[in-house]
Design a protein around this nucleic acid. Sequence first.
RNA 1: GGAGAGUUGGCCGAGUUGGCUGAAGGCGCUCGCCUGCUAAGCGAGUAUACGGGCAUAAACCUGUAUCGAGGGUUCGAAUCCCUCACUCUCCGCCA
Length: 423
Amino acid sequence: MLDLKFVRANPEEVKEGLARRGADVSLLDPFLKLDETRREKLHAVEQLKNRRNVVSEEIGRLKKSGQEAEDKVLEMRQVSQRIKEMDDELKDLEEQLQATLLTIPNIPNETVPYGKDSNDNVEVRRWGRPADFGFAPKAHWDIGESLDIFDFERGGKVTGARFTFYKGLGARLERSVFNFFLDLHTREHGYVEVFPPFMVNSSSMVGTGQLPKFAEDMFKVEGTDYYLIPTAEVPVTNLYSNEILDGGKLTISHCAYSACFRAEAGAAGRDTRGLIRQHQFNKVEMVKFTRPEDSYEELEKLTLNAERALQLLELPYRTVCLCTGDMGFSSAKTYDIEVWLPSYNDYKEISSCSNFEDFQARRANIRFKDGKAKPRFVHTLNGSGLAVGRTVAAILENFQQEDGSVKVPGVLVPYMGTEYIRN
RNA sequence: GGAGAGUUGGCCGAGUUGGCUGAAGGCGCUCGCCUGCUAAGCGAGUAUACGGGCAUAAACCUGUAUCGAGGGUUCGAAUCCCUCACUCUCCGCCA
């Protein structure tokens, strides 16, 4: 959520920022007009309330001393009625304003390259070299089938499309990967692990920006106000909602494993095979709460923390900076990390690392304070560290051997208890 | 799922015959005094949001709101009524 005062004071700057990311700016002027109406009305009703407070006090005094105050009571009865009407009008205005404000995306940071879509993203780093197999590499779904470690069909039977069973060493590989990620981030990168609820209420979803605009992308639990989380970002960022943190404790860094659930209404027909796009997948997420002045430095560190996981797994990747037109709703700057997938003959997103600046903090009301200074909003960041299913797919494809087995990356051998996955 | 108790400021904790209580008292914290150092002591201060003064920022002044959330009664509600959420205890059930 943008700062209303900032929008009010810098309408042109806001319009320009929104236009850069290709957002609709036509609603901004009516919005500001509405805001002005609200302030006028607020001022008027507050004056009435002041009068009511003063006179009510007087009535109390009069009655105490046994005097008559009936005329004043009658007058205040009318004033109160008027206040009630005006409060209702005001509430309506505020709801309209808030509703609009919640649908306005974040403004891109000035360092974000301008562009229309993913074609304009800018590669910033590349690591490792795709292997030269010397034989025709198979896609991970074929590898998984021949090794009998996935069961897509029964996933479909038991639940539906885009749900999968992992079996045997496949299940163990999934578990090994997220344990490795958690160990890496907690032991070497200084993150404090949390294990969050996998359902959150709607207000948490508003806090991180999934609601109100993207309800159709999520699973809602019928008869409740709860949603299945699309990412651990939601519960972990909202961990400190409506709190004022001690400035001395920042930066706070958390990592969390969670299952993630995405309905992804618009994704039908894309990535239909294999583990790449499932309605339920596992992910380890990193989340940071920083002082405003530290957030961009922390974004670089967080992105490198995610990259480190791929380096240790010996998986080739590249890192791209998303252009203004390709960024998510809440983000001010995003790096995507893309892992090499032989079956796609391309790099495929495996992590997304973003700085939201104070956009989420304002929605979720997460502030910090130094001593007697006024509370300020923190900056929030998060990034996948990493998506587990896609990591498993990348391991299978990049480490497959000519005989059909898959070599286990060295760092995972202690977790797997074997050096090869084979029939 | 059933029964009961509770939810007040950073924390603890008063306040339920409605009225000068944004809220006593204590702790904590900040500043000052005092002090060889520490401790103790003394004094002052110590919520947030949204408006207005202000054309802009800070400071300051001022108004309004906030005693779990929302609604109601009333000239006036932390105090009365209703609904909901959460916490705790007991019972049932379960992993």
